[in-house]
Design a protein around this nucleic acid. Structure first.
Lengths: 338, 338
DNA sequence: ATGAAAGCGCTAACAT
DNA sequence: ATGTTAGCGCTTTCAT
């Protein structure tokens, strides 16, 4: 087998045409399922393709058609379960449309983000879904001038022309904190990191609205990064007779970090301190006690952003902002059911 | 700005050459930092590139050089923390070498796996890292005939010619079970899924060796998929005076599933039943009690597989099998320290 | 140190 | 229903 051109062991469409005794164009027609090819010819060509183990070269096709059938996606952290689930949803939509997604990672750094996007641009991506490392990035705000469909995921870019898909961060947070207030807790501590992120600041806003409205005092422990949320600081917020009675964490990474610290302090939930968290995750319901969380419709969020991106391509300058609702899932860590 | 060819708003190297008043080849030399270009000329060309917002078209370069500078990676489940960490490591190595990784997902289906790999092949990937959906796949076993460097990640492909990177599954499992035996537990239940996977079967083997050697009875609850590990079956294994005293889970997905079920049964760890798990994860140490686990060197595993892939390219037919050691991390769920 | 011309593998006009 | 020709944007001989 593999008796084709011999130059480098890979059959091309020219080889296929030659062996099938047809012209290049006819072979191309068969490859692309175009009409105006007789069934006999088509069958013969397909047989040759099989025999030669022919794989169409998408680089060549892309060069010719100026359409790579690739979309780019850049996220700060693939390992975050929320992000991973979103990626999966985006890939599903892309697959349905015969697109490939090239995923890359900014590690939370706007510089890396920019460098990686430049590479995606070189790869001729037809669209970009970006989960911004920092929505203040001027680079991101000007990216749409490249005539590239772009969708901001989870966190909008402060350029009103760029479509965005996000959740009701503020409402979700407010509801969760109001639920804690409903339990009678007066001293509720917000714990999180990266307040420059739009999502975090909106959640913090929701927290403050609920706290202020109840006439309670704000208690906030916000670090530069989740892993930098430090034990001693937390200890100070929790100890003494004016210590926090409940905690609201601003994302799942902060939740995990907090659970670590609480474990080290030997504090029990909700006995010593109650807990509600923004963002659901697998173990949240298996944890003891099970965690009360604000759940985000992550798969839908991913689907929608991909769909919005493809809409952009067909119908440019459709500046939409989609906002999906969160849901408060009441389990036991808030004090319910125990 | 952007006063270039006008055909479709994207500057090409021809445009750059024209505006800089040099030949196409000279512009190409500058682009690729080749020698034999005067500093003055190079600077002038670079200035034009900047002014035009030139982005080299990697599709065209790849077509000409027959080198896409893309490697493919296919995994069953991006959301699995172990997998996500491995992907991240692979991307790091690729980035260092100016390669892009195109990641795709088999969802655990060999059919999807095959279809996705075909697409990667069309994209002219220069190498493939595959975390097999099912290592019995004949398709995978024959893939190396395409003259494509390939590395099996985590789970070897039963074709001795295909390099693989994996961990000491059997030893890790045996050590963990021996540790449980050391606590005096006689009735130890293994819980997991997908026994057709090499990793799982090796871990099960390690479990059996330890159990048999101690003269205890094997107790195994193995499902088709982790989510199918069912409560009633588990209940039967745990109840009665011959119920299991300890559990060993075969991967982290099974661990999470088990913790759910144990929670529903209101069983406490390690009081009612002790636990050791294969695979570490973020929350394992924050869980109460903290979980005793067999930890895999996941970042190193990812790095090594990527490095092995690049080695292949330079030095074909280097059939290596790398095996990295696991580590038993003793925390509290096994009964230690409580 | 610089340039002219050919061609990677495919699709798109335009025949026939 | 099928074929011919040109060209996508780049790199690569081979000249000069």
């Amino acid at each position: 087998m593999h008796l084709h051109n011999g130059r480098n062991g890979k059959a091309t469409l020219v080889d296929v045409a030659k062996y099938a005794g047809v012209s290049l164009k006819t072979a191309s027609r068969v490859l692309n399922n175009e009409p105006d090819v007789s069934d006999v010819t088509a069958e013969r060509v397909r047989a040759v393709m099989d025999r030669l183990g022919y794989h169409p070269n998408l680089l060549a096709r892309g060069l010719k058609t100026r359409a790579s059938s690739i979309i780019g996606m850049i996220v700060p952290d693939i390992s975050d379960p929320f992000t991973a689930a979103a990626i999966h949803a985006v890939m599903q939509v892309a697959r349905e449309r015969n697109y490939t997604v090239v995923l890359t990672c900014s590690d939370g750094s706007p510089q890396t983000e920019q460098a990686q996007i430049e590479i995606l641009l070189r790869r001729q991506i037809e669209g970009l879904i970006v989960m911004p490392a920092d929505q203040r990035s001027a680079y991101l705000a000007n990216l749409h001038t490249h005539n590239l469909p772009i969708v901001a995921f989870d966190q909008p870019i402060p350029n009103k022309e760029i479509p965005a898909v996000a959740v009701t961060n503020r409402d979700g947070a407010r509801l969760a904190v109001e639920h804690l207030l409903g339990h009678g807790y007066k001293r509720i501590l917000a714990v999180g990191a990266k307040a420059h992120l739009h999502t975090i600041s909106r959640r913090l806003l929701g927290y403050r609205e609920a706290i202020d409205h109840a006439g309670c005092a704000r208690m906030e422990l916000i670090a530069g990064a989740e892993h930098a949320i430090d034990g001693p600081a937390l200890h100070r917020f929790l100890s003494g007779k004016h210590g926090a009675e409940a905690i609201f964490t601003l994302n799942s990474v902060a939740t995990v970090r907090l659970l670590h610290l609480l474990g080290e302090e030997n504090l029990q939930i909700p006995k010593h301190v109650a807990l509600a968290c923004f963002d659901d995750f697998d173990l949240a319901s298996a944890f003891s006690p099970s965690l009360t969380v604000v759940k985000q419709p992550v798969a839908l969020l991913g689907r929608r952003s991909a769909e919005l991106l493809f809409d952009q391509k067909e119908n440019p300058r459709t500046s939409v902002r989609i906002k999906l609702p969160t849901e408060l899932i009441i389990r036991n860590s808030c004090g319910c059911g125990s």
